[in-house]
Amino acid sequence: MARPAIAIHGGCGVMAQLDLSEAEWSAAREDLARALRAGWAKLQNGGTAVDAVEAAVMVMEDSPQFNAGHGAAFNAAGENELDSSIMDGATLAAGAVCAARRIRNPVSAARALMERGDSVMLTGQAADRFAEEAGLRVVDPSYFGTERRRKALASMQARAKAGTTLTASEAEKHGTVGAVALDAAGHLAAATSTGGFTNKPVGRIGDSPIIGAGTYARDGACAVSGTGKGEVFIRHVLAHEIASRMAYLGESLDAAAEQVVMRDLAPYGVGAGLVAIDAEGRIAAPFNTDGMFRGWIDRDGRLAVATHAEVFELGAA
């Protein structure tokens, strides 16, 4: 029997402290803790790692604090296009949806597709239709938008006209949520969900639904969920690269994750972060930005959440 553990992220690049009020930072930390407890409850009640990562991501998709589901970023047309994926490290089964417009919890649609087993990814209207036929909750697209994201879109479009996009804050640009877990049977899983980046081109797909780029899990190695500039993550097959470094070079999870985030991506000058867990339940959460929404419940059942450098230890889960 393994000792379960879970880790989550809610996006990197977090942002100057002044970007949000202290009440908003506190609300985000509270929702991180809620997501962790939702996943932990699955693990403690005999659920699988897949159950745990789905449950944790669903909480963050339902929270307006994060760029996934309710509160997702708007594309250039002022619409929400949602991407998500999930992977079972025990079997390498995976599912993903992208450019979805009506699925309340895209991670659940990704799981349903994984379990159907005849394809890995569906896009756009086909993804929405699949979710509805699978009995999952679908909503009017207006559900996903929030005033905060509308302001971010207006800001980014103004910056685009002025040629100052590169000076935008991380809060204006993007975000992603994700979870990784190890269950009592020793199996690993990962899931990721996002609205992409603010003012993205219509139809743009990032790394979050791409198996091996934003999401990867393999028993005996690790489970990874990433957040950052998706185009670079795709080219580096980032999540799979960490598993490969561990398998082929014998690196520890910390060493492999540190190498990829801090050194391999350094020439691109992009914000990047991830959460990862290995077969023993060790957790890594490197990021190269000012902060990253993140949290974990370790093998001893201790819960912690963080946004910037300070880690808030919340005691037993």
Rank of each mutant, 00 (worst) to 15 (best):
I86H: 15
T167H: 13
L36M: 14
A100I: 15
A134P: 14
P64T: 14
G281R: 05
I277H: 00
G124W: 00
M114I: 15
R148H: 11
A109F: 04
W40V: 00
G89L: 06
A131L: 03
S108H: 13
A93P: 07
V224T: 07
G145C: 14
S84P: 06
D128M: 00
D300R: 03
A154N: 04
A41P: 01
E313V: 03
I210Q: 11
P106F: 08
T123L: 07
V275I: 03
A100S: 13
R218F: 10
L188F: 09
N80P: 00
A73G: 09
R148F: 10
R149C: 13
G230R: 04
R104A: 11
E133D: 03
R218I: 12
R34M: 12
N105K: 07
S21D: 14
V260D: 11
A38H: 05
R102A: 10
A213S: 14
A158F: 05
A217E: 10
Y248H: 12
R116Y: 09
E22R: 08
A247V: 09
E54F: 15
F197P: 03
I234E: 11
A76N: 09
V202E: 15
A181H: 07
G117S: 02
N80F: 01
A179G: 01
G47V: 12
R3H: 12
R111K: 06
T123K: 13
G271V: 10
T167D: 11
A191T: 00
M292C: 02
M292D: 01
V275N: 02
Q157H: 04
F197T: 07
A134H: 14
S244Y: 11
R299N: 01
H187W: 10
A100T: 10
R29P: 04
A160R: 01
G269M: 15
A160G: 01
P209N: 12
S142Y: 09
T192N: 01
L314S: 02
H174N: 07
F233I: 09
R37H: 15
A99L: 11
S193M: 08
A131R: 02
S193I: 12
A152E: 01
N105S: 09
A112C: 03
K161S: 04
P201D: 08
L122Y: 06
M121T: 04
V14P: 03
S85V: 05
Q44L: 15
I283D: 00
F312G: 00
T192G: 01
A243W: 02
V261Y: 07
Y143L: 13
D278G: 04
S26Q: 10
S21G: 11
D140M: 05
V311N: 00
R116G: 12
G39I: 00
V275K: 05
V138T: 14
M156S: 13
G195K: 08
G11N: 02
N105R: 11
A90V: 01
G214F: 03
R104Y: 01
K229F: 14
S155D: 05
L36S: 13
Y268N: 09
D62K: 10
S108N: 15
A213R: 07
V138S: 06
V224E: 14
T123Y: 12
N199E: 13
L18H: 14
P267L: 03
A100G: 05
T215S: 14
L274A: 02
W25G: 06
Y268D: 07
A76G: 08
T194M: 10
I6G: 11
A33N: 13
N75Y: 13
D19N: 14
E280P: 02
A55D: 09
